[in-house]
């Protein structure tokens, strides 16, 4: 449904561009939950904003394409769309849920009015009564009492705000919902509630989800497929279960082991040593090589390509170099 290829995003700064997304390829299929995991600075949020063409200066898309397929239509290219075309596409086809609901909502507007605004903008000619009914329906969908439509955002609890934001995203029956750390600002119990609700909604309404978070253990539970990002690139992409049970890339393994388990027997965990890369001055070769416990000779000079292996994609010399060459 969404086909991203070679997407490159630069932040223009006075000291030259900083590449925070580097040749990213990613596909999202219908009714699929794709997770994107990475740390801060890995480019995951940049990818999301570029994907939805919401990035603000100084971020600019310098290369790549984003194709959106819809049944019965020619695929459309998002990167060269005009603002007007984009506006039509957003909400109706692609909706976005951000990390902080407070930043996305108008603080001086009642919740119901914000829904009405969105509905009217994307469904011209919609009747007043229909707007009201739709708002109530949407709020109930996410478990917010319908009479909350009369509240201002600050009168709602954090969890309710975040759920309302999801309801707002679903207002125009989008086919893809892009979520950028939608549960980071809420507590674990609320997080669980939002996620189970999301799953049941997705089940019922059949939209696809792109879910971005730093919390890999959460993603393993939620997503069908996971892409791991590091320093602006996807380093591994596989089915969730494979990412968790048998990660190929040393960074994926480190990230998985960075979360202590709740029930499994536990010894000393080691995590990932070293510091996240400085994007202004990225390491040569594989960007992970300074922190990698399984570094090979060529890692500091040759950038590994993201290649398909065993039904997944991985960018690591350990797996793309023939065995005899490693032993040599």
């Amino acid at each position: 449904m969404l086909e991203v290829s070679g997407l490159t995003v630069d932040y223009l700064t006075a000291n030259g561009p900083v590449r925070s997304c580097n040749g990213v390829d990613l596909t999202v299929h219908e009714r699929e939950i794709v997770g994107i995991a990475g740390e801060s600075g890995s480019g995951k949020s940049t990818l999301i904003t570029a994907l939805t063409r919401l990035q603000r200066p100084p971020a600019v898309t310098t290369a790549g394409s984003i194709l959106y397929h819809s049944p019965g239509h020619e695929p459309v290219e998002l990167t060269t769309m005009t603002d007007g075309e984009l506006r039509r596409l957003r909400w109706n086809e692609i909706a976005i849920v951000m990390q902080s609901a407070m930043d996305c909502m108008n603080p001086v507007m009642r919740l119901g009015d914000q829904f009405a605004d969105t509905l009217r903008a994307h469904r011209p000619g919609i009747r007043r009564q229909a707007v009201k009914e739709r708002t109530a329906e949407l709020l109930q969908l996410v478990g917010v009492p319908a009479d909350r439509a009369r509240s201002y955002p600050h009168q709602l609890s954090g969890g309710m705000r975040q759920r309302s934001l999801i309801a707002l995203a679903l207002a125009c029956d989008p086919r893809v919902v892009v979520m950028d750390e939608p549960t980071t600002a809420v507590d674990v119990v609320m997080q669980r509630q939002i996620l189970t609700q999301l799953l049941s909604l997705q089940d019922r309404l059949g939209f696809a989800v792109v879910f971005v978070t730093h919390d890999l253990s959460l993603l393993v539970q939620l997503a069908d497929r996971i892409a791991i990002m590091y320093a602006g690139r996807i380093v591994e992409e596989a089915v969730s279960d494979q990412i968790y049970r048998n990660p190929f890339h040393p960074y994926t393994r480190g990230l998985r082991d960075a979360f202590p388990s709740l029930h499994a027997p536990m010894g000393e965990l080691s995590g990932i040593s070293g510091n996240p890369p400085d994007l202004r001055n990225p390491p040569s070769g594989c960007p992970f090589h300074p922190r990698c416990p399984q570094r090979l000779e060529q890692c500091d000079s040759v950038l590994p390509e993201l290649l398909p292996i065993d039904g997944r994609r991985v960018a690591c010399h350990l797996h793309t170099t023939p065995q005899e060459e490693i032993s040599r």
Partner: peptide, 16 residues
């Protein structure tokens, strides 16, 4: 504890 992310158990739409 139930609500904490745990990769060992799959999340289901049940009990939402």
């Amino acid at each position: 504890i139930d609500a904490s992310p745990d990769p060992e158990s799959a999340l289901s739409a049940e009990g939402s």
